[in-house]
């Protein structure tokens, strides 16, 4: 029984634990720590959703499947991460590969692709001053779908996700020169399509 009135020694609150780095979490994944994968998922699933939804150009439910497949590959391949780039770019690289396989089979199935009708429609009611921009975004979206997968990945990684060329090249496993050529081609085609008003 504790003596009445006895006070516990004053203790300073402990410092909050430093969050583990992505690299440490991946190392934990490599030895089978599932909680680490959960944390990696929490940190990166939103950017990955955004990235895959832009390169896969598919309906939402497929994007979810692709994201899940990507994280399963992250888990399986965690031991093969050597820290040459950022974890984010590495995950994006896996996502790009997973999407590439998906897109190949999708393209086969829909080779008579009616991409305009497949593309989700935007809201009709928009403020007048935004209509022109919205139309341009629609055009860009259509033009993006017409790029090759490699060009699209290069463009999304570098120009939308603002990844450095070095990281992007590493992520998708190509030389920097190759990446820059793809990016150059992608930008050129997109500009041409937008300026020609092709839809």
């Amino acid at each position: 029984m504790r003596a009445p009135g006895k006070l516990l020694a004053f203790r300073r609150p402990a410092e909050p634990p430093t969050p583990l780095s992505d690299e440490a979490l991946l190392a934990a994944c490599a030895v089978g720590e599932q909680a680490a994968l959960g944390t990696i998922y929490d940190r990166h699933h939103r950017p990955l959703f955004r990235f895959i939804s832009r390169i896969a150009c598919g309906p939402g439910s497929d994007v979810e499947d692709l994201v899940q497949c990507t994280f399963i590959e992250v888990w399986k391949s965690a031991s093969r991460f050597h820290g040459k780039g950022t974890v984010r770019s590495w995950i994006f690289g896996i996502g790009a590969n997973v999407s590439r396989h998906y897109i190949r089979s999708e393209v086969r199935r829909r080779f008579a692709m009616d991409d305009l009708s497949e593309r989700p429609q935007r809201d009709v009611a928009r403020p007048d001053d935004n209509v022109a921009t919205a139309q341009m975004v629609d055009k860009l979206s259509a033009a993006l779908e017409r790029l090759t997968h490699d060009q699209r990945v290069a463009f999304v990684l570098c120009d939308i996700e603002d990844m450095s060329g070095v990281d992007a090249a590493r992520a998708i496993g190509v030389r920097q020169g190759t990446l820059w050529r793809r990016l150059h081609d992608a930008r050129k085609r997109l500009r041409n399509d937008l300026e020609a008003g092709v839809r």
């Binding site: 599932q34 994968l37 959960g38 998922y41 929490d42 699933h45 939103r46 959703f49 955004r50 895959i52 939804s53 832009r54 939402g60 994007v63 979810e64 994201v67 899940q68 994280f71 399963i72 888990w75 989700p120 935007r122 921009t133 341009m136 975004v137 860009l140 979206s141 993006l144 463009f155 999304v156 120009d159 939308i160 930008r187 997109l190 500009r191 937008l194």
Partner: peptide, 30 residues
């Protein structure tokens, strides 16, 4: 071009959807 590209529509899951996906993922990994 970059500025326009960043306005492209993106797919984001709902909170529940993301949580469900997380659980399915961890079950698969298990």
């Amino acid at each position: 071009l970059k500025s326009l590209a960043k306005q492209l529509p993106e797919h984001q899951p709902t909170e529940d959807g993301a949580q469900a996906l997380r659980d399915t993922l961890l079950a698969a990994v298990n």
